[in-house]
Nucleic acid binder design. Structure first.
Lengths: 329, 329
DNA sequence: CAGAGTTCATGAAACGTTTCATGAGCAGGA
DNA sequence: TCCTGCTCATGAAACGTTTCATGAACTCTG
C-alpha cells in the first residue's frame, strides 16, 4: 500500500524503447516525432506502465497548471456555484484548482497569497473582503466582485442594472411601498451597486422605498422588528422586498412565513444571485440571476491570459430576472 | 506582471548568509541548527525575500502534501459541507486539497484517479458511484459512504441507526401511516441502510409504512402522483414522511406546500444529512444529522495514516436528530 | 555529383529541493 | 597528552522532467 518506489521514469522508457530521453518527452508532449520512434516509445510506455510525473515538469518549467481560488467558503450556495463553474472551466484547459477558504478572515486572505506563492500556482482568482489587500505583482491576479485598481482585472455582474430590474419587476407586480434589505458584510464593493440601481429605479418609477442594513449575526430578529414597525391593523404596509442576496431572501421568506405572511400574496420578494440546486430548482422564487458560468469563464480566461494588462479592469456581465421554480443559465 | 524570473533559491540564501545549502534547508525545516547559523540564514532570507519552492521538494521527496477529493459536485449542500470540513482538516495538517468533480460520471471517476497519479497526490478520499471502481493499490485510498472491501477503509455515518431514529421520531409525533422516499442514484451502498433501519423500526413500532424509489430526473411529478394516490376526501392518508436526503426533503416540502398541504401540521417530514447554511440555519426543519465534521476528520486522519491497513474497514459514526430552525454539530 | 537546406534524434545541462556520507571542531575521560 | 564520542556544518548526488546545441541522415537543386 506504500507509495510504489522505483516507478518507471522517462529514462526507463527511453532505455526500454532504445531511444533518447528527449524523444520520449517529445512523444508525450505530442511534438514532431518520427512514426517509428513514436510507436516504439508508446509500446515501451505500455509495457512499463509508465506514469507521467508532474512534479518534475513543475520544477523544470516553473508552471504547475494550477490556479488558486480564494473564496470565503463553499457552504454559501453562491460560492459553491462559483467554485463549481470555475473548476469546470479550469478543467477544460487542463488546469487544477487550489482552493483557499478564508471564512471572511482578512488575515487568512494574506496568508493564502503567501501559501500560493510557495506552491507556485500560475495565477489567483480571488473573492476577498479586505479592501486594503496587497495585490501581488508577481502572480496573475483576477478578482470577482472587487475593484482594486485599473491594473487588477475585476469580473462582476451588472449589479447596478440588476438592482434596477428588481425595482422594475416589483413595480410591474403592482408594488407601491418597497424596501431593500442587506446584511452588513456581504455587499461590499461592486455588489453594493445593487442598492444604487434599486434606489435609482425606485425614484424614477415613483416607488416609495426604504433601505435597511441588517447585522450579520442576527438578521432574523432584527428583520422581524423591522417588520413589526410596518404592520398596520395586522396587515403589512410594505408590498415588495428586494434582498441583497438569495440566501438572505431565503431566510427572510422563512421569517415571513413564520410570522404568518404569505409570499408572494401578501408581499413580493426578489432575491439576487440565482442560486439553485440540481434539477435547476432555484432556492428563491423570484431572483436576479448572476451569469455564474460566464463569470467563471471570464475569470479563468483572464487569469490565464498571457497579456493580463490588456484586459479591461472591470468586466461587467449582464444579469437577468428569473421567476418560477426553475431557472436556466 | 510576468512570473518573476530568477527568484532567489536556497543556494542564493546560502551564498548571502555564507553558509552551506544544506544548512539553509535545515533552518527552513526547523531542524537542529546552531544559533548563530540560524540567525544568519534567517537574516539572509529576509534580505533576499526568499520564497520556498514546493516544486523542488515535491520532486525530491515524491510527496506533494496534497490529498485528492473525488466527489460529484459542490452544488449539493451536503457535498459542499463535506468539501468544507475536509479542507479544514487538511489545512490543519498542512495539506492541500485537489478537487475532482465527477458529476456522478463513472468514467470520470476512473480518469481522475489517473490524473491524481500523474499529479502525485499523497492520497485519495472518494465518494464515488461506480460499484466496480478499481481501487488503486499504489495510493492510500479512503472512501466515504461506499464499502468496497476490507482493505479499503470506508467512513460513514450510522445510516441504519439514523433510519431507526427517523421512524421513532415519527412515532413520537403520533404518526401511524408513514412512507420512505428516495431518489434512485443517491442512496447506494451504505446510505441505503437508511431504509433498512427505518423499515426495521417501523415493524417494531407497528407503524404502517411504504417505500418508494423516485426517478432521478423528475422526482416532483412522480411524487405528486404518489401523493394523489394517498388523498382521501381531500385529506392525506399519510401522516409522516422520511426522505433519503435533506435535498429531497426540501423539494418534497415545496411540493407539499404547492399542493396546499401544511408541514408539519398535515404531515410530518424528516430528512437526512443535516445540511445547513450560515447562522447554522438548517434547510429542513426535522432531520437526521450526519456528523460531517467527524466524518471529515476520520477521512483525513485515515488517508494520512502511515498504516492504512490497521484502520478498520468500516468506521461508523453516530448520527443525531435535530429539530427547529438551527442545528449544532 | 556537390552543396545547401531540412528534418529529427541525441546527449547533457538545468530547475530547487532533500539527504547522506564526510569531516571539522570540541568536550570529557584516562 | 591522546583518544573517544559527540555535535553539527559541508559538499555533492539525486529526484524526473524540459530544452537546447549538436550533428546525422536525408532531400532537393543546379
Amino acid at each position: 500500500m506504500a507509495k510504489a518506489k522505483n516507478a518507471p521514469t522517462m529514462a526507463d522508457v527511453a532505455r526500454e524503447a532504445g531511444v533518447a530521453l528527449g524523444t520520449v518527452s517529445r512523444v508525450i508532449n505530442g511534438q514532431q516525432v518520427g512514426e517509428e520512434f513514436r510507436r516504439k516509445v508508446e509500446e515501451a510506455i505500455q509495457r512499463l506502465g509508465y506514469q507521467y510525473n508532474n512534479s518534475g515538469r513543475a520544477l523544470r518549467t516553473d508552471r504547475t497548471n494550477t490556479i488558486a481560488l480564494i473564496i470565503p467558503n463553499t457552504i454559501n450556495p453562491y460560492f459553491a456555484l462559483l467554485v463549481h463553474h470555475i473548476n469546470i472551466e479550469l478543467e477544460k484547459r487542463n488546469y487544477r484548482m487550489l482552493l483557499c477558504f478564508t471564512e471572511y478572515d482578512r488575515d487568512r486572505e494574506t496568508e493564502f497569497i503567501q501559501m500560493v506563492r510557495q506552491n507556485r500556482a500560475d495565477g489567483i482568482i480571488a473573492l476577498t473582503y479586505n479592501p486594503n489587500l496587497t495585490i501581488p505583482d508577481d502572480i496573475p491576479f483576477v478578482t470577482i466582485d472587487r475593484f482594486f485598481s485599473v491594473s487588477v482585472p475585476c469580473i462582476a455582474a451588472d449589479n447596478f442594472g440588476g438592482g434596477r430590474i428588481a425595482a422594475q419587476k416589483l413595480a410591474e407586480f403592482g408594488c407601491r411601498k418597497v424596501a431593500f434589505l442587506r446584511t452588513g458584510s456581504s455587499l461590499t464593493n461592486e455588489p453594493s451597486k445593487r442598492k444604487d440601481g434599486f434606489v435609482s429605479a425606485c425614484v424614477e418609477l415613483g416607488l416609495s422605498f426604504e433601505v435597511l442594513a441588517l447585522e450579520d449575526e442576527a438578521p432574523y430578529s432584527q428583520f422581524e422588528a423591522f417588520l413589526q414597525d410596518h404592520v398596520v391593523d395586522g396587515k403589512l404596509s410594505l408590498d415588495g422586498l428586494f434582498l441583497g442576496t438569495d440566501m438572505l431572501a431565503w431566510q427572510i421568506i422563512q421569517s415571513l412565513q413564520r410570522m404568518g405572511f404569505r409570499v408572494p400574496e401578501d408581499v413580493q420578494v426578489i432575491g439576487f444571485d440565482g442560486i439553485r440546486m440540481f434539477g435547476n430548482q432555484s432556492y428563491v422564487v423570484s431572483t436576479i440571476v448572476q451569469p455564474v458560468q460566464d463569470i467563471a469563464e471570464a475569470c479563468v480566461s483572464a487569469v490565464l491570459s498571457r497579456h493580463l494588462s490588456t484586459i479591461p479592469s472591470l468586466i461587467c456581465l449582464p444579469v437577468h430576472y428569473a421567476s418560477g421554480g426553475t431557472t436556466k443559465e
